[in-house]
Design a protein around this nucleic acid. Structure first.
Lengths: 230, 230
DNA sequence: CGCGAGACTGACCAATTGGTCAGGCTGATG
DNA sequence: CATCAGCCTGACCAATTGGTCAGTCTCGCG
């Protein structure tokens, strides 16, 4: 897990010191790790439900089953905490959505991308939601590097799409907006989970929904790009 | 404007009394209306930026240029205030997205729907954002009737799509998810305004963007439905 | 066994919050 | 001009907030 990264980056000074003495107190180290994990998970939960300002440290502490001061012991303050949570999310996505190359088959790449993203929306709606809320509110807590990083990421992918278009592998559509389309239509199932479940008259998503929705989006979007599907 | 509806519904008792004496104090009435409008607009702004819990009455008051107690004078409490704001939004959408019938041409209807929705995202990103945040957070403040109303709305539209499919006017795609797709892909431009402007390296949306994006989405989605476009 | 480093936390604080209310102010009425 | 209904608000309150810190507790080491 990448949790270590965050603890060393966002954790208070005292806690950072401990990083040097891991071997000394291995058992404590384990508990420490578990605690940090619990806190990050609890924080994510609360931030999603109540927003940044609306979330109280006490609520996070309660959900994590720890005293409030403990949260401040691991994370200097609320800002550090949400930074850690958000970075956790970006790492997760980066890990899942691998690289693409001009030599790949557009149909395969698009389908894989859509499928993966849909599945993420179903299995990890929380991070998706929190990320969306951050962006909606003006990305106040996404550090600059995360923002510029996103731009780079989109440009990279768009470049590949452009080459495919030049090679006649797909019809002429705006690559940047194609990425937005895929992003939004898949993310929607995480962000609007509540509304969608209400409309579909369900209690929660089922495995078959993932299949069905993936297939639906693949059909429309890939065909929309002038590629035969399936 | 539908503002009156809200004032009578959500406003405190004292204020409601005034409804009887409008003729007596017409000038006051005008000021009253203006104030309510200012408050609703300010509230929407603040709720978007800081979320429900994160928004303080004081902040709304400051933005509206009124004393805090005045807000409580017009709206009994924070809950009433956000209810009023949200209803304002739903009304706006309902007004814009008219009815459709089986006899209409699918291509026309889809194109009109997409174009209108995109334009809304550009001209009224605030309401879109607030609505999205509400849903993400579990629609805590959207009253039941709003939720069930949405379901009814979607079912109605889906029914028409189904008939079109039966008549062979479009290919067999899931109508409900088609609505989700249109909704998400268009709303995305409001909700993720910040991110998108960063990626497109712009300060704000331009009129030509509306055209370009509408055209892009129409092409992909309508073609994706097996209808020739344009 | 006694020591000390470092992991932890109860109790506290200044600041801010949503909400209240007594009383000031205004403008139409007689 | 005096009156008064009722629109408005300054000043206040109890509750909650993020954050601090002086300690207490734990556990490996010598």
């Amino acid at each position: 897990m990448t949790t270590d990264t965050f603890s060393s980056k966002y954790t208070g000074e005292k806690a950072a010191n401990n990083a040097n003495g891991v071997d000394k107190q291995q058992k404590s180290g384990k508990i420490r790790e578990k605690s940090i994990e619990h806190i990050l998970s609890a924080a994510q939960h609360e931030f999603v439900i109540n927003g940044f300002k609306g979330t109280t440290i006490q609520a996070i502490a309660d959900r994590a089953g720890l005293p409030k001061a403990n949260i401040h012991y691991y994370f200097k303050n609320k800002d550090n905490l949400i930074h850690a949570v958000l970075e956790n999310i970006l790492d997760l996505w980066d890990e899942v959505l691998g690289d693409i190359s001009v030599d790949d088959d557009p149909k395969e790449v698009l389908a894989h991308f859509i499928r993966t993203k849909v599945r993420m929306s179903f299995t990890h709606p929380g991070p998706s939601k929190l990320f969306a809320m951050e962006i909606i509110q003006g990305a106040q807590h996404l550090k600059d590097y995360a923002r510029t990083y996103l731009r780079k990421w989109v440009r990279e992918k768009a470049k590949v799409f452009e080459l495919w278009i030049e090679q006649g592998k797909m019809s002429k559509v705006d690559p940047v907006h194609l990425i937005f389309l895929i992003w939004s239509s898949t993310q929607h199932y995480a962000d609007f989970e509540t509304q969608i479940l209400t409309i579909m008259n369900r209690g929660e998503y089922e495995e078959e929904d993932v299949e069905h929705i993936s297939e639906f989006l693949c059909t429309i979007i890939i065909r929309g790009c002038g590629i035969e599907y399936p």
